[in-house]
Structures are given as structure tokens and as C-alpha cells.
């Protein structure tokens, strides 16, 4: 019989705060919820913000702290994008749960007289389903609180959003991130030098989940002493010199040179969306380019980025961006000659 592989806990889960008080960097929501623990008052909630900033963590923590493990099942309904949340579910499962009267609490936990329905990743709910929620939310507001969680607040219809206390989850600051990382390093016995630490917090862009995943991967692959290069290796960011060569080729004004670089980038497997975002940073910071040149490059970059999201081909979008950049840099008019 083959050896059974036992799971060791993922660090992301291992270091997920269990109490709202331990959620870092989101003071406003933490203050409100700590208050809830004392008074038992809770508004409907809407958490929004980029990935890995603590939204799910906070919602789960407050639910556990309010009701404890015993009542959790009967008082909390957690639905996310993996659950079906079409109109029919809103009208049946969600409504039924919302309608149930609450029983008495148990000692040791605040157990306020309502249930919580957590709708995680709510931006993937259709507008129709959201509309169907409005009535339920109003009708049962005495016994039920809703907590919506999403990345983009614009995807939540106004009538729902306006009924909620909204909290924006900010990307974690560099020093806060460093604090958490250093704590984990200590617990796990890892050794990162200053450069590796700052690389890690730079490439994670305020996303703590990413930072922790990179850290664990690097630790597994490279052992307990981790360098800045190791971090870059697991992060999937494009090395600076790749970008530099592309820009250089664009500056040369020779189409075939740029084409060669583009082909190389695709063969190396670099994600083109990542190239775009790093090219964007480069252009913005450039002191050589005029404002008009920057505008021309960025406009096409934005369009190409959208095209990628629509499923367009990486190679074609990249070659178009490179060609446009090249023409902007040599001040050739944007209009096509033979159009």
C-alpha cells in the first residue's frame, strides 16, 4: 500500500486570526465589531476590498465570537461563490433561514437575538438574485443580519449596499505586512534577510494571503534560509531585465526586434497581464517619456488589459501593445496610414 500523505495545515489557515481583535490594519471595522461584542448591536455589513486583506477572516471571526461553536450552525449561514445562489435559492434556502425565529442563547457567548447570513464573494451573484434579496432583507431584519463580502463594491446593487454599514478593507501597509511576516518567520523558524523581507512585501502588493503563500512555498523549496531571489522565484513576477529588453526593443524602432522579444516572452511563459502591469509601472515612472507618449502607451495598455480579461490571445495583445509603444516612442502618428 502506498504511503498515506497526511495534511499539514496550510500556513494561510494556520495564521488566520480567530478573533476580530487580531485582524491587522482594518481598525474601523474592528472597532465597530468589538463594540458589537459588548452591546450585541450589529448593522447589516458590507465588506469590500482587494483579495487577502481579511474580509472573510473578519466575518467568520465575529460570527464565531458571537455564537460560539455550539450555536454556530443554527445561527450562521455561510454561502460563497461555490454555492448556488441563484434566484431560486434566494427565495428558498436563504429566505427559510432568515425567517426562523431564534432560540435562546447559551452562556459564555453574547448570543444576540438574531442570525447572520454571510454572503461571501457576493460580486459573483447576479443582479436578479440580489434584487430578490431586498425583500428578505427588509422583512426579516429583526431576526437576521446580512454580511456581504466582495472585491468590487460596484457589483453590489445600490438598494442592498445602501442598507449596509460599509467597510473598505485596505491593502495592508508595508510595515504591517512585515510585522505579520516576521511573526510567522519566528514561529516557523525561518531566516529572511532585510532584502528578502522587503521583496516579499513588495511583490505581495498588500495581499497578506499572497505573502504567506509565497513564504511557505519558498520555505518548502529552498529551506529555512530564504533569499530575495527565492521569493522572486516563487512569486511569478517578471524579472526586471525581461521588461528592460522589451522596452529597449521598442525604443529601437525596429519592428522585428520587438517581435523577437514578444515571441521570447511568450515562449518563456510569462503571464502577459503581469507584463502589462509592470510595463505600466515603468511608463509612469519614466523620466524620458513625454506626457503625450505616456498617455498613448497607457491608453492601449488599458484596452489590451480588458481584452485579456475577455479572453483574447496573449501573444496578439502583447505584440499590439509593443507596436503601439514603439510608435509612441518614435512619435509616429497614431492613425493608420492605409486605413
Amino acid at each position: 500500500m502506498a504511503p498515506l500523505l497526511r495534511t499539514t495545515q496550510q500556513w494561510v489557515e494556520k495564521y488566520r486570526p480567530r478573533k476580530v481583535q487580531d485582524v491587522a490594519h482594518q481598525e474601523e471595522v474592528v472597532r465597530t465589531l468589538v463594540n458589537t461584542l459588548e452591546t450585541g448591536n450589529l448593522p447589516h455589513l458590507l465588506f469590500y476590498g482587494p483579495p487577502g486583506t481579511g474580509k472573510t477572516t473578519t466575518a467568520l471571526a465575529i460570527a464565531h465570537q458571537l455564537f460560539g461553536p455550539e450555536l454556530y450552525k443554527s445561527r450562521v449561514l455561510e454561502l460563497n461563490a461555490s454555492d448556488d445562489r441563484g434566484i431560486s435559492i434566494v427565495r428558498t434556502k436563504i429566505k427559510d433561514f432568515a425567517a426562523v425565529a431564534v432560540g435562546s442563547g447559551i452562556s459564555g457567548y453574547p448570543c444576540p437575538p438574531f442570525k447572520i447570513i454571510i454572503l461571501d464573494e457576493a460580486d459573483s451573484m447576479t443582479e436578479d438574485a440580489q434584487n430578490a434579496l431586498r425583500r428578505t432583507m427588509e422583512t426579516y431584519s429583526k431576526v437576521t443580519r446580512f454580511c456581504f463580502i466582495c472585491n468590487y463594491i460596484s457589483r453590489i446593487i445600490e438598494p442592498l449596499a445602501s442598507r449596509c454599514a460599509k467597510f473598505r478593507f485596505k491593502p495592508l501597509h508595508e510595515d504591517i505586512m512585515l510585522g505579520r511576516i516576521q511573526y510567522i518567520c519566528q514561529e516557523e523558524g525561518l531566516d529572511l534577510d532585510q532584502e528578502a523581507l522587503s521583496t516579499l512585501s513588495r511583490v505581495s502588493e498588500g495581499d497578506l494571503r499572497r505573502a504567506i503563500t509565497y513564504l511557505q512555498s519558498a520555505a518548502r523549496m529552498y529551506g529555512s534560509s530564504i533569499s530575495s531571489d527565492n521569493i522572486i522565484g516563487v512569486s511569478g513576477i517578471v524579472p526586471d531585465d525581461v521588461l528592460k529588453r522589451l522596452v529597449q526593443a521598442c525604443k529601437s524602432g525596429e519592428f522585428d526586434l520587438a517581435h523577437t522579444e514578444v515571441t521570447e516572452i511568450i515562449a518563456e511563459g510569462h503571464p502577459v497581464s503581469q507584463i502589462f502591469s509592470q510595463l505600466f509601472d515603468y511608463v509612469i515612472q519614466s523620466t524620458e517619456m513625454s506626457d503625450e507618449q505616456k498617455a498613448r502607451v497607457c491608453e492601449r495598455l488599458a484596452e489590451a488589459d480588458k481584452c485579456l480579461i475577455d479572453g483574447a490571445d496573449e501573444y496578439l495583445q502583447l505584440i499590439d501593445v509593443a507596436s503601439n509603444t514603439m510608435r509612441a516612442l518614435s512619435n509616429v502618428t497614431q492613425e493608420c496610414t492605409y486605413f
Partner: peptide
């Protein structure tokens, strides 16, 4: 330049 642009455009 032009042809690449239109290829990207129509593929999208």
C-alpha cells in the same frame, strides 16, 4: 504594425 493591430482587434 497595422496588420498586427487588426489581428489583435479581430481575435478579441
Amino acid at each position: 504594425h497595422e496588420v498586427c493591430h487588426w489581428a489583435a482587434f479581430y481575435e478579441h
